[in-house]
Computed example of a mutant assay.
Amino acid sequence: MPRWLWFVPLGLATVFGALMAFRYGWIAATITETDVIEAMAHRYATQDGGPDARASDCVGLAGQVDGAWITVRCADTAYHVSRLGRLISVSMPQGPAI
């Protein structure tokens, strides 16, 4: 087996790592606060808010938990989002005690 063939997996892993680093850097450089607020407002209006939920119920705040870039507060629900746009956690109101 040729000696250069042993280095092909290392080269492929290096190229894959470089592409992933470029991708995450591109996301971090181009994502805006507006993109995050709109995405979380859409999630609230379609999934978590209930039948009367509207995207206009949401407001963006500075990150309020450790590691959060933005906190999007929609009525009583808070979405904590990282700098890469990943949802860290969701704080929803607790139901009444029974």
Results as ranks from 00 to 15, higher is better:
42 H>G: 08
24 Y>L: 10
15 V>N: 09
66 D>P: 08
47 Q>K: 11
56 S>D: 14
80 H>A: 12
23 R>I: 11
74 C>D: 05
67 G>A: 06
1 M>N: 06
29 A>H: 06
38 E>I: 01
34 T>I: 11
93 P>F: 12
39 A>L: 10
40 M>E: 12
57 D>Y: 01
91 S>D: 15
91 S>F: 05
94 Q>M: 13
68 A>R: 06
9 P>R: 08
32 T>M: 00
21 A>V: 15
41 A>H: 06
76 D>Y: 13
98 I>N: 13
14 T>E: 05
92 M>D: 11
45 A>V: 03
39 A>E: 01
22 F>H: 09
27 I>E: 10
37 I>L: 14
45 A>L: 04
72 V>T: 05
5 L>Y: 06
90 V>L: 15
17 G>L: 07
7 F>V: 03
66 D>W: 04
60 G>A: 13
79 Y>A: 12
44 Y>K: 02
62 A>W: 07
62 A>G: 12
88 I>V: 00
57 D>R: 02
35 D>N: 03
84 L>N: 07
63 G>K: 00
76 D>V: 04
65 V>F: 02
12 L>N: 06
70 I>T: 15
51 P>S: 15
1 M>H: 08
58 C>G: 11
94 Q>I: 06
77 T>N: 07
64 Q>C: 06
48 D>S: 15
53 A>L: 02
46 T>G: 00
41 A>R: 00
18 A>M: 06
73 R>P: 10
3 R>D: 14
89 S>K: 07
24 Y>Q: 09
97 A>Y: 05
66 D>F: 13
57 D>G: 04
16 F>H: 11
88 I>L: 15
32 T>S: 10
18 A>P: 00
17 G>I: 08
16 F>C: 11
47 Q>T: 11
17 G>D: 01
76 D>C: 10
92 M>T: 14
74 C>H: 09
31 I>N: 06
54 R>G: 05
80 H>N: 13
14 T>P: 04
55 A>G: 07
38 E>H: 11
72 V>E: 05
35 D>Y: 10
88 I>Q: 06
69 W>G: 02
59 V>F: 05
5 L>T: 04
77 T>L: 03
85 G>T: 07
16 F>L: 13
89 S>G: 01
25 G>N: 14
51 P>G: 03
62 A>P: 09
19 L>S: 07
